[in-house]
Nucleic acid binder design. Structure first.
Lengths: 165, 165
DNA sequence: CCCGGATCATTTGCATGCAAATTATCCTGC
DNA sequence: GCAGGATAATTTGCATGCAAATGATCCGGG
C-alpha cells in the first residue's frame, strides 16, 4: 500500500537523492532529509511488519512475552531483573510483562531465599507447554519475515544487525 | 554482552539429526530457539539503540514526532490520515502524535473545506524552525547509529531492510 | 436521488517502552 | 561492624502502537 515513491511534491527528487555528490555551494552542509530513507524509520517499518507476522502466527502472547518465555526455557529460572536484561527490557517494562504472564498462568514468581530483594521467575507447566508447541510457529515467523530475501541476504542482514545491537 | 552461543542447555543437536527417517514419532523438526539470534529480537535491540542515540541528540521531540515534522516539511500540509500512512502510524497513533505536537505549537490543524471528514495538518513556523535547525543533528543520528559499519555494510543494510519494509 | 460501501477521525482498551524517584536489601572497604 | 555505594523491585508519568468499535461524511451506481 501507499506506493508513493516517484512523486516528489516539492522539487527535490532525482538529483538530490541519487548521489550526494552534487556541488551545493552556499548552503554548506544543508542536505535533504527523506524520511523513507532514514535508518530509524526503515527499522520501525520492518519491525511493524514482523510484529504483524508474529501476531498472526502466535496470537496467545506478544513478542516480548514470547521472548520472556523463550529466555526462561533457555536458561531456567532467573531473577526478574536479570530476566529483563536478557530480554532487553528495563525494570519497569519487565515487571509489567511478568505480571501479565503470571496472570495468564504461564510463569510463576517466588522469593529468593538468598537475596530478599530478588524475585525468582520460572516457567509453569502451562508456560513450557505453550512455548514448546509454539516453536514451529516461531520458526515459521522468522522464515516468513525473511521470505523476501535470498539466503546470502539473510545471513548478511543478521550479521550486520548484530554489529548494531 | 552476554555471549552464550555454544551452550545448548537442552541436549539437542548432532544426534537428533542423523536419522531423518526411522520410526521417530512426529517430533522430527524440533530445532533449538536461541532468542538472541531471532530477527525480531535483534531488530528490537537495534531499534532501542537508535532510539537512545536519537533522544540524546534531539531531546525536544520523539522519533515519531520528528518523523511527522519531516514528512510535513517534505510534502507540505496533509490530511491527518494520509500523514499517518506516510509516517507508518495508524489512525489512533497519529492522532495522539498530532495532538501532542499541536500542544507544543509545532503544527496546526485546520478543517478541510472540501471534505468535512478531513483534518488538514501543517507545520507552524516554530515547527519548521525546529525541524530545520535539527537537521544536522538528524544526519548525525543516522551516522552515529551506523557508525559500527563499513560503507559497504551500510548500503547493504539499507538495501536489505527496504526489501523487508 | 438515494443507498450501500468506503474513507476519515475519534475513542476505548490493552501492552509495551523509557525516565525518574523511592524503598528495601546487599556488599565492600575502612 | 557499619556507612556508603550498588543492586533489585516498585511506582508514576508520559508516549507510542495496535485492535476494534463508532459516528460522520463522501462517493459511485442504479
Amino acid at each position: 500500500m501507499i506506493e508513493e515513491h516517484a512523486s516528489p511534491t516539492l522539487a527535490r527528487g532525482k538529483l538530490a537523492r541519487k548521489t550526494a555528490s552534487d556541488y551545493a555551494p552556499a548552503m554548506a552542509t544543508e542536505k535533504s532529509y527523506i524520511l523513507d530513507d532514514q535508518i530509524g524509520f526503515v527499522l520501525r517499518r520492518v519491525t511493524q511488519r514482523h510484529l504483524a507476522i508474529f501476531t498472526d502466527a502466535i496470537p496467545e502472547v506478544t513478542t516480548t512475552q514470547f521472548a520472556t518465555l523463550a529466555k526462561l526455557a533457555e536458561m531456567g529460572p532467573l531473577s526478574q531483573n536479570l530476566l529483563g536484561r536478557l530480554t532487553a527490557m528495563d525494570a519497569a517494562t519487565i515487571k509489567g510483562v511478568v505480571d501479565r504472564l503470571r496472570k495468564q498462568g504461564l510463569i510463576e514468581t517466588t522469593a529468593d531465599p538468598d537475596d530478599r530483594r530478588r524475585l525468582t521467575v520460572s516457567l509453569t507447566e502451562a508456560g513450557r507447554a505453550l512455548f514448546e508447541r509454539s516453536l514451529p510457529a516461531a520458526h515459521a515467523i522468522t522464515a516468513r519475515t525473511l521470505a523476501p530475501l535470498s539466503e546470502e541476504e539473510r545471513q548478511a542482514l543478521l550479521a550486520i544487525l548484530l554489529k548494531l545491537a
